[in-house]
Amino acid sequence: MSSSKTDVRRYPGFLSVTLLCLLVLYAPLVIVGIYSFNASNSITSWDGFSLRWYAEVFTGSESEKFKIAAWNSLFIAIIAASCATILAVLAAMAIIRGGQFRTRQISQGLVSLPLMVPEIVTAVATLIFFNAIGFSRGHMTIIIAHIAFCVPFAYMPIAARMQGVEDSYEMAAMDLYASRFQAFCRILLPLMIPGIISGFLLAFIISMDDFLITNFVKGAGVETLPTAIFGAVKQGIKPNIMAISTMLLGLSIIIVSLSYIVSKFDNTK
């Protein structure tokens, strides 16, 4: 609890700065959301409510392109998120349950480092890496790149959950003749499930939404939803782009909220 004297709300200008920040952050999204329901062709003047641009996404001339891209995105996101989740669980086991080892701090840092590296650097580095080993670009390069940058996102809720499960449960299990592996499967894993689901969802949506890295490592002709949207925008912004962006935004909000809610779920009661 903050005492009333140091309450940040009492600082002069607090309200106006807050409103300005919220405006800069969310106004563009709100405008895109609103204009996706515009009845006219214009992207600047409002002409009444309509769902025609949503219909356009599914039935219009570009619908086939978007459909393929959406399936690609879904396929890649599921595989990348699954692999990243497994890797994140293994990393958490080593870092949180592995006891004290010398490279523990470094490992912990290395897992989270990609969150701080500029994405363009990761993108260029990944591309150079694939070129260097002579890996031809396509679905596979996208999946591998996505697994790599999704691990830290999956790791965060998984590690938080594992830290929240006392190791005395696993100790009790081993005391009762369970092997390490049995203690993991029968005790730790069930207790961590919310963290694992939360991590998977986060990794999934990060993969779904990624543009920059995907754009670098994708092969010619392979499109995910974000790269397809980008491709369409290059030929001029049409309101159907706003509709599809709004849908992607909606999906992100739902998945991120779900991830948060699941991570708070207490399955020990």
Binding site: E166, S168, Y169, M171, A172, A173, M174, D175, L176, Y177, A178, S179, I187, P190, L191, N267, T268, K269
Partner: peptide
């Protein structure tokens, strides 16, 4: 521990909550 015919009643019980 899983190879020792010895069982423990832990100070905090450590009952499997699930």
């Amino acid at each position: 521990p899983n190879k020792r015919p010895v069982n423990t009643v832990f100070q905090n019980y450590a009952l499997f909550p699930h």
